[in-house]
C-alpha cells in the first residue's frame, strides 16, 4: 500500500508538471508571465482585460491539457479492463471496431448529410458510428451465447473491416477531399477541446473509473481464470458483458471529441502492472495516472515539434507505443 501511495504521489506530481507545461507551450509562443496572468484572470483571481493571449491560454490550452489528462486516464483504465476481461495482452479500447465505426460516422455526415448540428455534428456522428459498431460486435458475441475472448476479438476485427470498407466507399463515391477530414478521426487530436464539452469527457472517465473500482475484486478473480472465478461466485459471463458495454460507451465518448488515439490503452496497463502488480485496486488508479501523463505529454510534443503546425497526437502516441513494444520484446528476450 505504501508503495502504491508513493507511486501515485509521484505520478500526480509528474502529471501536474505536464499540465503546467501543456498550458505554457503551444503552436504560438506566449511568455510565461502572460500565461500565469491569463490563468489567474480566467479563474477570477486577478483583474484586467482579456487579451487574445489570455483567451488562448484559458479557453484553448487549459481545457486542452485537462482533456488530454482525462482522456488519457480513461483510455488507460479501459485498456486494463479489456486486457483483463479478454485475457489478451494486446486488447485495447478500439477492440470493438470503435475506431472504424467513429470514422465511418464522421465521413457519413461529411459526405452525405453535411453540417446539420453545427459544432456538434461531427462529435455526435462519430459517437453514433462508434456505438453502432460496438453494438454490432457485442450483439454478435451475445447471440453466440459466449463471452469467449477470442470470439470478441474476431468479431471486432470483422466489424472494423466492414466499417473501414464503408468509410472508403463513402470517400470514393462522394467527396474525395473528405479523406483529409478522416485523418483527424483516424489519428486523433485534441484541437476540439473546449470547456463546453469538458463535462462530457469527465462523465466518460467517471463512468469507467467508478464501475471498475466497484468491481475491482471481481476483475481480480477473473485473473485466475473463468472456472476459478465462477467458483468464487463471480458471474463471469455477465461481468464480461457489462464491462465490454461500459468500456465501449466510455471509449465512444472519448473518440467523439478526440478521434482515435492509438496505443495509450494498450501500453499503459503493461507499464502499470510492472509498477504495482496485477491487482485492480492498485492497477486502476496507477493506469489512470500514467495514461493521463502519457497523453498530456504526447499532446505537448504534437503541438511543439512542428509549431506553428500541429501534428495529430495519434502519431506521437503510436510512435512512443512502437518503441515501447520494441523495448518490451528486448527485455523479455534478455530475461
Amino acid at each position: 500500500m505504501a508503495r502504491l501511495s508513493l507511486n501515485l504521489l509521484l505520478g500526480a506530481v509528474v502529471l501536474i508538471a505536464l499540465l503546467l507545461l501543456s498550458t505554457a507551450y503551444g503552436t504560438t509562443a506566449i511568455p510565461a508571465p502572460d500565461v500565469v496572468h491569463a490563468v489567474l484572470l480566467g479563474l477570477g483571481l486577478t483583474e484586467g482585460e482579456a487579451a487574445p493571449v489570455h483567451r488562448i491560454v484559458f479557453e484553448l490550452r487549459l481545457p486542452r491539457a485537462l482533456f488530454a489528462a482525462v482522456i488519457g486516464a480513461g483510455l488507460g483504465i479501459v485498456g486494463v479492463v479489456l486486457q483483463t476481461t479478454t485475457r489478451n495482452d494486446l486488447a485495447d479500447p478500439f477492440l470493438f471496431g470503435l475506431s472504424s465505426g467513429a470514422a465511418a460516422g464522421a465521413v457519413f455526415v461529411i459526405t452525405v448529410t453535411g453540417d446539420i448540428l453545427g459544432f456538434w455534428t461531427l462529435p455526435v456522428a462519430a459517437f453514433t458510428g462508434g456505438i453502432i459498431a460496438s453494438a454490432i460486435v457485442l450483439s454478435l458475441v451475445h447471440s453466440l451465447r459466449t463471452s469467449a475472448p477470442e470470439k470478441l476479438i474476431l468479431a471486432g476485427l470483422a466489424v472494423s473491416f466492414l466499417f473501414a470498407a464503408i468509410t472508403n466507399y463513402l470517400i470514393f463515391a462522394g467527396d474525395s477531399r473528405a479523406a483529409h477530414s478522416v485523418i483527424f478521426w483516424m489519428l486523433g487530436g485534441l484541437g476540439l477541446a473546449r470547456w463546453d464539452s469538458f463535462p462530457l469527457v469527465c462523465a466518460g472517465l467517471l463512468l469507467i473509473f467508478a464501475y471498475t473500482a466497484y468491481r475491482a475484486r471481481w476483475l481480480d478473480a477473473l485473473l485466475t481464470g473463468d472456472v476459478t472465478a465462477s467458483t468464487l461466485g463471480v458471474p463471469v459471463q455477465r461481468l464480461r458483458f457489462s464491462m465490454f458495454f461500459i468500456a465501449a460507451l466510455a471509449t465512444a465518448v472519448f473518440v467523439s471529441v478526440a478521434g482515435v488515439i492509438g496505443f495509450v490503452g494498450l501500453m499503459v496497463p503493461h507499464i502499470a502492472r510492472g509498477m504495482v502488480g496485477p491487482l485492480h485496486r492498485n492497477l486502476i488508479p496507477t493506469s489512470a495516472i500514467i495514461g493521463a501523463a502519457l497523453l498530456t505529454g504526447s499532446d505537448i510534443v504534437s503541438r511543439v515539434i512542428l509549431a506553428p503546425q500541429e501534428l495529430p497526437v495519434g502519431i506521437v502516441t503510436t510512435s512512443i507505443g512502437a518503441l515501447f513494444v520494441f523495448l518490451l520484446l528486448y527485455r523479455t528476450a534478455k530475461s
Binding site: 506566449i30 488562448i56 483529409h180 506553428p308
Partner: peptide, 27 residues
C-alpha cells in the same frame, strides 16, 4: 492554421474555405 495561431493575431475575420484552410469537423 490552428485556432491558437489565429487567435494570437486577434483578427475579426478569417477568409478561408473548406479544404482551403478548414476541414469539416476539424480544429
Amino acid at each position: 492554421p490552428t485556432v491558437e495561431n489565429l487567435l494570437a493575431a486577434d483578427p475579426q475575420m478569417f477568409f478561408a474555405g473548406w479544404y482551403y484552410g478548414m476541414q469539416p469537423g476539424g480544429d
